[in-house]
């Protein structure tokens, strides 16, 4: 009888030990690229006074680098597309963190933590690398991108988004109005980009010292993957504020905002605006 009692004890103890072992398997390991987190500027939400204009725009992410000899060719292709499509195409250029993205000596370093995080997430291995709404990837030959962008602008938008940005002392106040009909969780990401940055760039076989870089990502203002939109609200206004770094020329800068599906990270719509001084 005693042996039987011990056996039961033994059985339950081993069950307990096995359960504890499973529990202890939870020993977190963090990749070195993710040692730090950027929470970004907090977004305050309220009902929007009016719906923004329902315009579908295309969000283009261009991964580039000063030592990427084909990147200027991609710039020219995108510029041509922009001539054709106009402001319904919003470009954000992201400096690749390694290899061809490393700046020449004594040249500006346009790499950003947010851009690096996106680059790592999307596994960018060669340049140029261009994403349309974070759904379609173009590398090498991007000659057909203009027609694909045009095609993406067809139909009724699932979400409308509008943005205004104003200088308030040294800070920039951003107001984003959103209207959508989606039930999935959406996120709002805001970034600042800068045009007319002249620094050394490899263009084909030639090294151009004053190559003009446009749409360069300077900072992801929200957290890298955006702030969650409150559930159950289809017409809302998000406000946020941040202080840009001193080396950003605000007159040459734009605020870009985009709505994404949180799960797939697909961009649903976007908008951009210059910085104004009236507030």
């Amino acid at each position: 009888m005693k042996r039987h009692k011990h056996f039961n004890f033994q059985f339950s103890i081993f069950n307990l030990a096995a359960a504890l072992l499973l529990l202890f398997a939870a020993c977190d390991t963090i990749d070195s690229e993710e040692y730090t987190i950027y929470d970004g500027a907090p977004v305050s939400w309220s009902p929007a006074p009016a719906a923004p204009e329902a315009v579908q725009r295309a969000y283009i992410e261009k991964y580039t680098g000063p030592k990427c000899n084909n990147c200027p060719k991609a710039d020219r292709t995108l510029d041509a597309a922009h001539e054709q499509i106009g402001d319904r195409m919003v470009v954000v250029a992201i400096n690749h963190p390694t290899g061809q993205g490393i700046p020449y000596p004594n040249q500006p370093d346009l790499r950003t933590d947010g851009g690096n995080a996106w680059d790592r997430h999307f596994g960018i291995t060669y340049l140029p690398s261009i994403h349309l709404n974070r759904t379609e990837l173009y590398t090498g030959d991007i000659s057909g991108i203009a027609s694909n962008i045009s095609q993406s602008l067809q139909g009724t938008p699932q979400a409308a988004i509008g943005v205004q940005a104003a200088l308030n002392g040294s800070a920039v106040d951003i107001t984003v109005d959103i209207q959508h009909t989606l039930s999935s969780t959406l996120t709002l990401t805001a970034v600042i980009i800068e045009d007319s940055l002249a620094y050394r760039q490899l263009d084909g076989a030639e090294r151009v010292d004053d190559y003009v870089h446009n749409h360069m990502l300077r900072k992801v203002i929200t957290s890298y993957w955006g702030a969650d939109l409150p559930a159950g609200q289809n017409l809302l206004r998000g406000t946020l504020s941040f202080t840009p770094a001193d080396d950003i020329v605000l007159e040459n800068s734009h605020i870009v905002v985009f709505l994404s599906d949180k799960a797939s990270r697909r961009v649903i719509n976007c908008a951009s605006c210059p910085l104004t001084t009236d507030h």
């Binding site: 977190d28 963090i30 730090t36 987190i37 933590d113």
Partner: peptide, 9 residues
């Protein structure tokens, strides 16, 4: 940036 802390060590 804030640290991405491991909760289970």
């Amino acid at each position: 940036h804030r640290l991405n802390l491991p909760l289970n060590v």
